[in-house]
Amino acid sequence: MSHSVRVTLPPNLRAMAQVHGEVLLEIPGEVTQRSVLDALEGQYPMLLGTIRDRATARRRAFVRFFACEEDLSHDEPDTPLPERVVAGEEPFMVVGAMAGG
């Protein structure tokens, strides 16, 4: 069974991937950070290394993951995402950490 998952990207990565608005991904099997990001990088290979470190495959320090008004950044990569994300009712949000003054 596959799920249609909505993903939002920060402006810099939208420009790099040449997408406007949300990205829609078909995720086979369980919907987790890892499976969503694998699908995202598979569909948009120019994003390889920009969200997860190439060497460690871990989330880059200044990238955050939000969904359903929760910060999921520190969840393990294979933790299932919230049901509303799985159902396509809420997006999985890739966000650049706050900066500036």
């Binding site: 470190d53 190439r54 900066a99």
Partner: peptide, 8 residues
């Protein structure tokens, strides 16, 4: 390059 999004 970017402190947020790494090396391209």
């Amino acid at each position: 390059t970017s402190g947020w999004f790494g090396q391209v």
